[in-house]
Simulated scan of single mutants.
Amino acid sequence: MSDDPRSWLDLAHVDDAVFELRPDYRALLVLADGLRPGPSDDVSEKLLAHAEQQARELLDGGAPEELPHVAAWRDAFRAFGAKPQRTRTSVEALLRRLDTGLPRVDRLTDAYNAVSVSRATPLGGEDADRYRGPLRLVRATGEEEFETTRSGEPAVEHPSPGEVVWRDDAGVTCRRWNWRQCLRTRLTESTTRAIFIIDMLAPMTGADAAATGDALIDALRATSPDLRADVRLLAK
């Protein structure tokens, strides 16, 4: 990314073709610096345990797809040809793991997963210093490269034509809107600057986006007291 984080954030955009698909879409970007990476610990465990309880109360014994925001995301996936029963949004995949407990990954991932499930909102985090050029949300041509793993080995895949993807100058950073992140920009235990993407559709509002952003910053600050954050809302 650029040596000027704010300028880099200002260059992020959503392509008109995505807004044509879902005019109600909005993304809140949180660029966080001064992060303290590391393995899961007591702080991230407390965040996740509290979020698990909040999510169980939100579901109230129902299935994740019965939540209005999760249902909206299923519709959005169908609109570009994805089958939500096979390709679930990141938040639905997490909510379906509540019975056995959310995964404990690392301090930073645990923090944003906690906010995601407690707010029933797709939320992803990636190492901003591994980006090449600005991030943007587009409908894929099918020629873009997506770095992933297959059978434990590095592999390159290509999105389907028309698929909604986040990308930079080097390729796809997240397939199917918020389904799977690439290998290149994933958070690691050396990440100190990250971009977090909060994806929202109606019935979520601009106020909901702001509140979720505040909750994310609070959770990250619990793990990283020296956190500095820049925020930008992308909407039609």
Rank of each mutant, 00 (worst) to 15 (best):
A194C: 06
P203L: 14
S224M: 06
L58W: 11
R136N: 11
M200W: 04
K83T: 08
D60W: 11
A128F: 01
A202Y: 02
D33A: 15
E189D: 15
V138G: 08
S224T: 01
R175H: 02
A49V: 03
R97N: 09
P225V: 00
R107P: 00
V105G: 07
P122Q: 11
G38L: 11
Y112C: 04
V30R: 03
H13Y: 11
L29D: 10
A120E: 00
E20I: 00
Y112P: 06
T121W: 03
A114R: 15
R232I: 10
A219N: 12
G101N: 07
D75C: 04
A211F: 03
S118W: 08
V115S: 11
A202F: 10
P203E: 11
E153H: 05
K46W: 06
F196K: 06
I217F: 03
T100N: 08
A93P: 02
D15I: 08
G133S: 05
G142D: 10
E145M: 09
K236Y: 03
D10Y: 10
E153C: 05
A194K: 02
H158N: 13
R175W: 01
T148I: 13
L67G: 01
A215T: 05
F80H: 10
L187W: 09
M204Q: 11
T89P: 04
D127G: 09
M204R: 15
A229H: 09
L183S: 14
E145P: 06
R97A: 12
D230S: 12
D129Y: 08
E153Q: 13
F19E: 06
T185Q: 09
D99Y: 07
M1T: 02
E163S: 11
K46I: 00
H50M: 05
P103G: 12
V172L: 12
R176Q: 05
A72G: 06
F196I: 01
S190T: 01
R104I: 00
V231H: 03
E144C: 06
D4G: 07
S160F: 12
L9F: 09
L47K: 11
G152W: 13
G61W: 10
A128D: 06
D41T: 01
D226V: 05
A49T: 08
D60P: 04
R228G: 11
F146T: 02
Q53V: 14
V117D: 01
M200I: 04
S90H: 15
A209N: 02
A120K: 12
Q54E: 04
D4L: 10
P64W: 13
L137K: 08
L48N: 04
E45D: 14
S2V: 00
H50G: 08
T148P: 05
L201R: 08
G101K: 13
Q53C: 01
P225L: 00
R56V: 07
E65F: 12
T173W: 00
S190M: 03
D99F: 01
K83F: 07
K83N: 15
A12S: 15
P64L: 12
L187F: 13
E65W: 14
G34E: 02
G38W: 12
A140I: 01
T173Y: 01
R26E: 07
A55W: 12
R136F: 03
P203A: 14
